[in-house]
Design a protein around this nucleic acid. Structure first.
Lengths: 222, 222
DNA sequence: GTAAAAACAAACCAATCGGTCTGTTTTATA
DNA sequence: TATAAAACAGACCGATTGGTTTGTTTTTAC
């Protein structure tokens, strides 16, 4: 008995005081374990891509044994789907909270530029960008995954069009719907993100985003 | 001797006339075999994605034995890199040939719309789109591949900006470089392509492209 | 025609894949 | 405290991975 007093469960080793292992309820254990596994799945995806994110890599990152994993998930595909869904749902929710910073209403281009930079940093740079692309591509050749993710990708575009559109108004005379412009904007950011993903970051891109903000400012106002 | 008279090498089986196997020079053989293998690599990538494009799948598609393959390529990675390079170089070359259809110079929006549709159909629909994304993502987590592909991705953007820009002129008063607008345009198309890849085709997208063409028409002329 | 080289086929290989099985430890129930 | 169930660990499994080896066929050079 008490064979597992190693590492975490033994504290204050200097004083040689044994502290009982943290007692956690089974729902707590289950939830935390699944959370760890899903997080490790995304980490592996970000670090090694879909092709390189093997179950062994994921379990190593999570620090979870194969047996424990099997107790919580039936297949790797199921775990991946859950991880991807979580990632995308968070993005949808987050799209609604991106607000054009509080600037004087007359300061159109700058405020639009700030909105673009916010969206860029939140979705189309670094880890989130990588995961977004990995997950989208993984779904392409996996019917089951595609079925689960496709509606969330649609929701994201809808959310962008609607919530960003609420903060902006069409300039009188401009015959374009604000929601459409916002959708075009995220498409442009995405394409720019793919360029950076493939060819590395470009100093030109910040300038191009500002240029686009200027064009937008001719169409919308706050 | 003559153990391999099966299939291809025996013709006119009804008449039982033996026809000598087509004699091909070794450079011919080598070139055609490598071509077949590279083509099959892209096919596998398009059909099964990077994660699913195993060597076995590729060789099945090519109808080539493992031994024959080994005679022409050292590693799968090398073959994949060659296939990806070919794909992207063709795209760069093709970007230069996309011409705004011959329309009356006054017909700005329609001609720009036609250019967008040409680019959309050529690069961002169907197999080419899928391959483009697969290859870009594969490069992300493969340093060797990235090093070989990154400059070609950059070349593509440069080619779009320059060659498309040549056919167009900035409208007097518009303070935007035509090349920049063209780059923004391909970024937008790419982002739209990714949406279709992940969420399926959308009838809205043709309308959004036309809307974009309208915005462009306010900035450039022929 | 003959010998060497190139092209090709298929058996073979260690390593890894996703997944399962058996047994131990921890929590819940009574 | 006793018993069952849930959580967990690690050995194990057949299938598949990228790659190699051995041997045969075709082309080339003499």
């Amino acid at each position: 008995m008490a064979m597992m007093l190693a590492g975490i469960n033994r504290r204050d080793m200097g004083k040689m005081v044994e502290v009982a292992a943290t007692r956690r309820s089974q729902p707590e254990r289950r939830e935390e374990m699944r959370r760890r596994l899903v997080a490790a799945t995304l980490d592996a995806l970000a670090d090694h891509g879909h092709a390189g994110a093997s179950l062994s890599v994921i379990l190593d990152k999570a620090g979870v044994s194969r047996g424990a994993w099997a107790h919580h998930f039936d297949t790797k595909a199921e775990m991946l789907a859950l991880a991807a869904e979580g990632l995308l749902r968070e993005a949808v929710a987050s799209a609604g909270t991106l607000s054009p910073p509080a600037l004087s209403p007359s300061d159109g281009p700058a405020a639009l530029g700030a909105l673009l930079e916010q969206a860029w940093a939140r979705f189309y740079e670094g880890r989130h960008r990588d995961l977004l692309f990995e997950v989208a591509l993984a779904a392409r050749t996996d019917a089951e995954l595609k079925q689960r993710l496709a509606p969330i990708f649609s929701d994201f575009i809808t959310a962008v069009g609607q919530s960003w559109g609420l903060a902006l108004h069409p300039r009188p005379g401009a015959g374009v719907a604000v929601a459409d412009l916002m959708v075009l904007t995220v498409y442009m950011l995405r394409g720019m993100a793919m360029q950076e993903l493939a060819a590395g970051p470009s100093p030109d891109h910040a300038r191009l985003r500002a240029l686009w903000a200027g064009l937008l400012a001719a169409q919308v106002t706050f």
